[in-house]
């Protein structure tokens, strides 16, 4: 068991080095630091294959990629948080000295002292690290939850409740109604025909209505109400099926991108 593992590791390392040499060789005409470039491209390809190997089963290659990913990306976001939030948004408001150290323009303002609030709350949060101060770290949590609740209350009401309702005021006879006579004399089932657009409006109206009934909590779903809620769930299922089918194309494109990287940038077997 051990022996095969070592053997596999040796084979993979050998292949890696081989690819590195070949890659560096093919790049040598184009760039000065072809040794490093060759390594970087080989390494990217190696990571790509390592992740794909998870589809077969969990294995040391995947574990390596996974652990590297976690470590590097955690630090990535930490650095981003430091440079974009602390250095660009906090320091210019609180300290001229630090601003000039980090070479960011200070942003003077009358109410800048308010920005000590998050700093204090942030420090309170770190009190968790002391065994006795844990309880005080609930204050920043309480502040955050209050902020989230307050901001989202109006935000959702506005964009999801109000806007979706007014979008649903559709005329059931379609937008180009020119009287019954005209309607019957032009009756057909072509995709851009009046009947078909009309039907879409009916579906939108009844679909939203029955969908809302499905979500109704304070009435048992029985009788006519139950029937409407049943229609509601059918509309939801159609929605889910349709969006699932529609998304597939985008997902395949992602894989096309990865495989093109392997074939073109790494192996150079297609142009």
């Amino acid at each position: 068991m051990k022996k095969t593992t070592y053997l596999l590791m040796a084979v993979i390392s050998a292949l890696f080095v081989l690819s590195w040499i070949l890659k560096a060789g093919s790049l040598s005409g184009e760039t000065d630091n072809y040794v490093i470039q060759g390594f970087l491209i080989t390494f990217s390809a190696f990571l790509t294959l390592s992740v794909l190997s998870f589809l077969y089963a969990d294995n040391p290659l995947y574990k390596f990629a996974e652990h590297l990913f976690v470590g590097v990306s955690a630090a990535f976001w930490m650095c981003m948080g430091f440079w974009t939030t602390i250095v660009q948004n906090l320091i210019p408001r609180l300290s001229d000295g630090l601003s000039s150290f980090f070479e960011v323009p200070p942003q003077p303002g009358d109410y800048n002292f308010f920005f000590f609030i998050p700093v204090i709350l942030g420090i309170l949060l770190l009190m968790r690290l002391s065994p006795k101060g844990g309880w005080i770290s609930r204050w920043p949590l309480a502040f955050i939850i209050g902020t989230t609740a307050g901001l989202n209350f109006v935000r959702y009401l506005r964009s999801d409740f109000i806007k979706q309702i007014s979008n649903t005021f559709v005329p059931l006879l379609g937008t180009e109604w020119q009287g019954i006579g005209h309607f019957f004399s032009n009756l057909d089932l072509s995709a851009s025909g009046q009947l078909v657009t009309m039907a879409a409006n009916w579906v939108i109206f009844l679909g939203v209505f029955c969908g809302l009934i499905y979500f109704y909590f304070s009435k048992e779903h029985k009788g006519a109400f139950g029937a409407a809620s049943k229609v509601g769930i059918w509309v939801l299922m159609l929605t889910f099926g349709a969006s699932f089918g529609y998304t597939v194309m985008g997902r395949i494109s992602l894989l096309v991108g990865r495989i093109t990287f392997l074939f073109r940038d790494w192996l150079e077997i297609i142009s």
């Binding site: 989202n152 999801d160 939108i204 679909g207 969908g211 809302l212 979500f215 509309v235 939801l236 929605t239």
Partner: peptide, 23 residues
């Protein structure tokens, strides 16, 4: 047609429900 009728209706019902849930 399905994307513009059923899908639209379903999404809308879900969004209205969500907004009330959030409130």
């Amino acid at each position: 047609w399905i994307m513009n009728s059923f899908n639209l209706a379903g999404q809308r019902a879900i969004l209205i429900g969500i907004s009330l849930g959030v409130v």
